[in-house]
Design a protein around this nucleic acid. Structure first.
Lengths: 132, 132
DNA sequence: CTAGTTGCAAAGAGTTTGCATGGCG
DNA sequence: CGCCATGCAAACTCTTTGCAACTAG
């Protein structure tokens, strides 16, 4: 059960480390890597992704439409404070850093005895661009 | 664009009203209805479900494994002005009346230029009961 | 050399779509 | 009668699996 150090594994790791602020679908990862000259087979992407999630290096969550899995680097603590604002018009998923999240979480716990899983919050609405 | 009153539509509505505390996958709904003698085609189930979600009558979630969509009654008109807190352990959907919602909506609009559709907010976490 | 890895293509699961038929108003 | 809704099956999308070829240690 030793972990081999392959080109594909390295490519994925480097990709996540350099994009800790964004999240991607498996297909996006495959494409972006291909454009950087690192071609990996679909199966390999999925298999490695599964493993990275198990190891806790990467976090998996589901887009609001429930159709695709998204992956995001979680190696650092960078991912603690963010909203997901999903525009129901254009489909954009805005990724917003904001301290207000803590406040909200705190309120809900204090007043409603509910422990919010901050990383899973997705708020639907209409973004600025689409407001015309 | 008038909404017709069909046997299938009625069956789905009644099903949700009688099971407001539970959540189901599309396939489960199809099966349970079939066992009650109400056979609906797969496509019809999905189409009606989509509509009910749009109307805010029903909420769509993603199951724990991240692979299937789940649907749960969210109670039509009475559910406009409050939080929905979804427990990811037991699946319960808590309906919480709270002015804090307005505050949050306001903050997000002011600071992030995003118009929240309050009635669609669902916050995931762990409820008091499951916190042991 | 041996065991873990990869890539391809085929298989699966869940959901959507095209189109002819059926049924509400 | 007109128009929306339904059902079926085929099409799609995302993900997983089987298997032979490959490669790190």
């Amino acid at each position: 059960m030793t972990e081999y150090n392959t080109r594909q594994r390295e490519a994925l790791l480097r990709f996540f480390e350099n994009n800790g602020d964004r999240h991607f679908t498996a297909a996006q990862i495959e494409n972006e890597l291909a454009m950087m000259g690192e071609k990996l087979g679909k199966a390999t992407v999925y298999r490695r992704l599964d493993r990275l999630v198990e190891e806790g290096m990467v976090r998996r969550f589901v887009a609001d439409d429930g159709k695709v899995c998204c992956y995001q680097y979680a190696g650092g603590e960078s991912c603690k404070n963010h909203f997901h604002l999903k525009c129901t018009k254009c489909g954009d998923l805005l990724h917003v850093e904001c301290d207000y999240l803590d406040e909200m979480q705190h309120h809900i716990f204090e007043h409603h005895g509910f422990t919010v899983e901050t990383e899973k919050i997705t708020i639907c609405g209409v973004c600025e661009k689409c407001k015309s």
